[in-house]
Design a protein around this nucleic acid. Structure first.
Length: 693
DNA sequence: GTGCGAGTATGA
DNA sequence: CATACTCGCACC
């Protein structure tokens, strides 16, 4: 049945067995004249096809001849089916050519799946960059870049774009707070490709907040006849930005594109972009490859949010995808957030992004006042506060603010692994050998490095000289009921995993939320309590401080500004020791923190100042890969450390400039393993945002 | 991954 | 010498 030669000729399923056998053995007569020998296309008879083999060593284009019947439809970018090594596989036509480079005989294309050219040249170019960057295959990246076809969606969508009146350049009210903003927008409107990192000023007025800011930038691109792509971490952000875009652009100029909208809706949105029906796309990381026409602006919000990391191979970060696209399409680039991630700080330092921050005085007025309430030793003095396990300062602030409006309470999620820090100064304890975090693998076990697996034995804190280690376990459970009892008569709402609220009313109430699930309050919260600060700070990850500050800033940005009496209380942080993330929150200086953190990581040779890769798999297989001959000079191998019964992990570290060479060597090693059919698979991950876990 | 040819082992 | 089987590699 799978035999292509006999399928049409034998004329029935009930063919005699002996005859079948004879047919199979016979030296297949090479295509006699007849229906099989179809005429070929007149021009550009050869199609270059990227076949989705799923095999690393076959991740390159193959040539096929184009039958006359497909001469018009088999254009670059369309999906095709081809015969490859005896099976029917999918692929994309990358190009058409008059003559073949391949010396041997070419097989004809089997079928054009759809005449829709879903893979544009620009997206292909960016995909290639991303594949190289992450030592992945182009096939893997294209699977992320082009959504699965949905035939019904393709049929249903009218091909003629709706008529939309031209858009005038918007007033850019939200941008008025950013002195360098005008020149960025002017360059964007003029068809240039400025690249910037922006620290957003919090604003409780929706016309001035970050969604309005990004929407105005998008509208500037549209008014100049260019398109815009806006990527945000989650669907709540998509919803907020959608509202802002409608306000600035009117209807019919933008479309949402997220993975959670389902195959048909997603493909419909994709097609509306591809066919040029809308110039603006807003979405989650699934939208990062959207084929926007005449792309003028690529922007993403909150670089540090881990939702920007793609969890499927080759695990690209939205930042890297958009950087690649900006380069490929000469588009402007804008990353904005209340916080600045360390990778973004590095891009700023390297001059690849210019800063576009709100001036510090404006920031400090727009932001709430921040107080640190200590670790809770004073809690017992106030009985009502003790009921809620709140420091009394926090309790008093909340009590007062509740007269005036809603109060946000941020409670970290429980269940983090214990990590170790210095008992005296509370800085994270690091491995003296490789700089990795020290932690406990089991209760009672000696402290061990989570990267190289060594057990350093004695400990001396490089910062204060202390010798004692402290295991941080997430503190007391704070429940909505406890808080409710501490504030009788006040309505309590919760927002967290499972039930996330987008918005709450502006009247007095307690809103208890886990980080990332904080609802917006119209007019802003009167106050926010950030509880269990150490639970965020003590996470056994490289990015703990960065992440803690980012989450605090996100919650604090929903609070009214200093001028309007907004207050934030950080509870559960030490008052005596100076913790950079805490200091940065109090001073509202995220740029200072990011630059400082970058400096520290450089001193310790930690990401993102070095190139890193993790190899995860059976010990021997991972070790064999780490010995790949083509690895660039200066690669250090750390580990192995066990990650499960079967698998171990090796960490490769190289100078940052050696990143491309490291990726190339690992891609080659993967291809070699694939060609040799090595059964044990090794997962290769380049520059994982947190290599320590 | 599959299919195939070269090369080698095996037995009449 | 014919047939069975493994190995290595190309796959357009």
């Amino acid at each position: 049945m799978g035999d292509p030669g006999s399928a049409g000729a034998s004329g029935g399923v009930t063919a005699d067995d002996a005859e079948q056998l004879a047919l199979l053995r016979a030296p297949a007569p090479r295509r006699r004249a007849g229906p099989a020998a179809e005429a070929l296309a007149d021009v550009d008879q050869v199609a270059l096809v990227l076949v989705d083999t799923g095999l690393a060593h076959l991740d390159r284009p193959f040539e096929y001849v184009v039958p006359a019947s497909m001469a018009e439809t088999a254009r670059p970018g369309v999906r095709v089916k081809v015969r490859f090594a005896g099976q029917d596989l999918g692929g994309f036509v990358l190009a058409r050519r008059p003559v073949a480079e391949h010396e041997g005989r070419l097989t004809p294309l089997r079928r054009v799946v759809s005449p829709e050219p879903v893979l544009t040249e620009a997206v292909l170019a960016a995909s290639r960059t991303v594949a190289q960057r992450y030592a992945g295959t182009l096939g893997d990246v294209l699977r992320l870049a082009v959504p699965p076809r949905h035939a019904v969606a393709e049929k249903a969508l009218p091909s003629a774009p709706p008529t939309v009146t031209p858009l005038h350049r918007p007033a850019a009210r939200a941008w008025a707070a950013y002195p360098a903003g005008a020149s960025f927008l002017t360059r964007l409107a003029g068809g240039e490709a400025p690249a910037a990192a922006l620290l957003a000023r919090p604003a409780v007025d929706p016309a001035l907040d970050w969604p309005a800011l990004l929407a105005e930038a998008a509208a500037t691109a549209v008014a100049a006849g260019r398109g815009a792509l806006l990527v945000v971490p989650d669907h709540r952000d998509v919803a907020r930005l959608d509202v802002a875009l409608t306000a600035v652009l009117g209807a019919g100029r933008h479309v949402r594109l997220t993975a959670d909208q389902g195959p048909q809706a997603r493909y419909t949105a994709f097609l509306r972009v591809l066919r040029g029906h809308v110039p603006v796309v807003v979405g989650t990381r699934a939208a990062a490859f959207a084929p926007v026409r005449d792309l003028g602006l690529l922007t993403w919000w909150d670089d540090g949010d881990d939702l920007h990391e793609e969890p499927r191979a080759p695990y690209p970060h939205v930042r890297e995808v958009l950087l690649a696209r900006a380069q490929a399409e000469h588009a402007a680039l804008l990353t904005a957030g209340y916080a600045r991630s360390v990778p973004v700080a590095q891009l700023v330092e390297e001059g690849r992004l210019r800063t576009l921050d709100a001036p510090r005085p404006a920031l400090r007025t727009a932001a709430p006042r921040v107080r640190v309430a200590g670790e809770g030793g004073e809690a017992e003095r106030d009985p009502a506060a003790a009921v809620a396990h709140l420091p009394s300062a926090a309790w008093r602030v909340a009590k007062e603010a509740l007269a005036d409006g809603p109060v946000l309470v941020q409670v970290p999620r429980r269940g983090y692994l214990p990590s170790l820090s210095c008992q005296d100064c509370r800085r994270p304890a690091r491995c003296p050998h490789c700089g990795g975090p020290l932690g406990l693998t089991r209760p009672q076990a000696p402290a061990a490095c989570r990267w190289c697996g060594r057990e350093p034995g004695g400990f001396t804190c490089p910062a204060c000289g202390g010798h004692r280690l402290r295991s941080s376990v997430v503190g007391a459970r704070r429940t909505a009921e406890e808080l409710g009892r501490a504030f009788p008569g006040v309505p309590v709402q919760t927002s967290g995993s499972g039930a996330v609220l987008d918005v709450v009313e502006g009247s007095p109430r307690l809103v208890i939320a886990t980080p990332g699930a904080e609802p917006v309050a119209p007019g802003g919260y009167a106050a926010a309590l950030l509880l269990d600060a150490w639970a965020l700070l003590d996470r056994p990850v490289l990015t703990a401080g960065e992440e803690a500050l980012r989450r605090w800033l996100a919650a604090a940005s929903l609070v009214r500004g200093t001028g309007a009496g907004g207050v934030v209380v950080l509870a559960g942080a030490p008052v005596h020791a100076s913790i950079p993330a805490v200091e940065a929150l109090v001073r509202w200086d995220p740029a200072w923190f990011a630059a400082r953190e970058l400096e520290e990581r450089r001193a310790l040779r930690l990401p993102p100042t070095v190139a890193m890769a993790t190899l995860t798999g059976p010990r021997r297989a991972a070790a064999a890969m780490a010995e790949a001959p083509a690895l660039p000079d200066g690669v250090e191998v750390l580990g192995p450390l066990p990650v499960s019964e079967e698998a171990t992990r090796l960490l490769l570290r190289a100078p940052r400039q050696a990143g491309p060479a490291l990726a190339a060597a690992l891609a080659a090693a993967k291809a070699g393993r694939s060609a040799r059919k090595d059964a044990d698979s090794v997962i290769v991950r380049l520059d994982p945002p947190d290599p320590g876990l």
